[in-house]
Design a protein around this nucleic acid. Structure first.
Lengths: 241, 241
DNA sequence: ACCTCTCATTCAAACGAATGATTAAATCAA
DNA sequence: TTGATTTAATCATTCGTTTGAATGAGAGGT
């Protein structure tokens, strides 16, 4: 039973398990081992993302999850095992974010591909810069990106590679250039970098802009404008060749 | 004396001080207290930047610097004190990187301002993405950016604020828009983000591009093209208002 | 209904190792 | 000698992990 008094009721700790167990055999939710697992992953995502893997202690994670320290070893083997589980959770939840962009039949015209890309930028901005529920996911993902010894391999295969590949396809169709060319792949990375930086540099940007929190509106306007400008430039460059 | 056998001879530890001391009273270099300070800062920059502040232990830092653990406390008070000294070193060395962009009289035409910005992009790409000597500086700076409890305040005042302000001035002059407008400040952040991402996402990008190391040439081409396209778009947007 | 057994889960407590920091002695040029 | 600097050794603390005992719910026998 948790007795830590100082805690913002942010992600709401594990459900009170004093009441009667409604049925652990039914499946996975409510209070029970699965709830502990989920709470530990949520706490791990938050603390790993917020302070980094090394700086987040197992005791702090367990306290935030309302669980015992030994639960980490029991459910995930070790702290590193929890990290892997967090990475898988990120990949799982992130698979749906770009659904709007990748969904449906392939675009039939450059204009349609461009609209898909614009929708993708808007979705990513909303997810990465603003969405409060996704803040922990984004923070964790970006932490792991800089840590070669971490879960990078797994995240690369499950998140980076497929998303980047799809964006390159759209970019190539919108500009009439080769989706696999070096230029296209770099351009897409640059576009993504523009967006991601607003999460990484968040404290700096908020200070410099005089904001209390990220404003998705102005961000979308600027980034879509840059996207269109870059697409035009790439189209012209492609024709010049 | 360090006895750690496994160490790539990367930044070459402090100079061998077995020989006669040539003269510590002369000033600051050679072997002596200043050399220890410098070696500790260099080791701190590398390890803080590479593994993060929490994950880098004082013993590892001292070993890499060829110094005793107690030297950190003696010269900097504490591990956090060394971190601050590293931040100041970054600010000091970074002040010269953008010299080419900010040097000389203010540009007298939009075209000249644009050329300054292009030169700035090239300098930043060379520094951030490629320069091996500056790898530790860039890694440290970007680590601290994500750590609100770190040296962010100091780095904001000494690095971010002045550089970003100067870039906004140039952007405003190149596009004929207000340098202090929200649009301009966000656009400059987006441009910087494009560049910085190639350092942050370095492991991912190298893998996806099939590179062994960053290629400054293609990066410059893409980023300058994006810069020009964004400047054109901002100019048009400014006139439309 | 009652008891017992079984198994999965949670718990407080403790483990050894590593951490940041500190000490007092040793070192060395002036 | 003097004062600054470096050193090995040790400090208390915190770390990730492990342990063995509680806890509680279902199964099966009586």
């Amino acid at each position: 039973m948790p007795r830590d008094p100082d805690k913002t009721s942010a992600p709401k700790n594990r459900a009170d398990r004093t009441g009667p167990n409604t049925g652990p055999s039914t499946g996975r939710d409510e209070a029970g081992p699965e709830a502990t697992r989920a709470a530990l992953i949520a706490a791990g995502l938050h603390l790993f993302g917020h302070k980094g893997f090394a700086a987040a202690s197992t005791r702090e994670i367990a306290a935030r999850a309302g669980a015992n320290v030994a639960a980490i070893g029991y459910h995930f083997g070790s702290k590193a095992g929890l990290r892997l589980a967090c990475a898988d959770e990120v990949a799982r939840r992130l698979a749906g974010v770009m659904a709007r962009v990748e969904a449906g039949s392939p675009p039939r015209s450059p204009q349609e591909a461009r609209q898909r890309l614009q929708a993708g930028v808007r979705a990513m901005v909303a997810f990465i810069a603003a969405a409060p529920e996704a803040a922990d996911l984004a923070a964790f993902l970006l932490r792991e990106m800089t840590d070669e010894a971490g879960t990078l391999d797994r995240l690369y295969d499950s998140v980076v590679s497929p998303r980047h590949g799809e964006l390159c396809r759209l970019w190539g169709q919108a500009t009439g250039t080769d989706p696999d060319s070096e230029d296209t792949r770099l351009s897409v990375f640059a576009m993504i970098g523009q967006i991601i930086y607003f999460r990484i540099g968040r404290p700096i940007i908020l200070r410099r802009m005089g904001w209390r929190q990220m404003q998705a509106g102005p961000l979308c306007d600027i980034l879509v404008r840059h996207l269109n400008a870059a697409l035009d430039a790439a189209t012209a460059e492609g024709k010049a060749k």
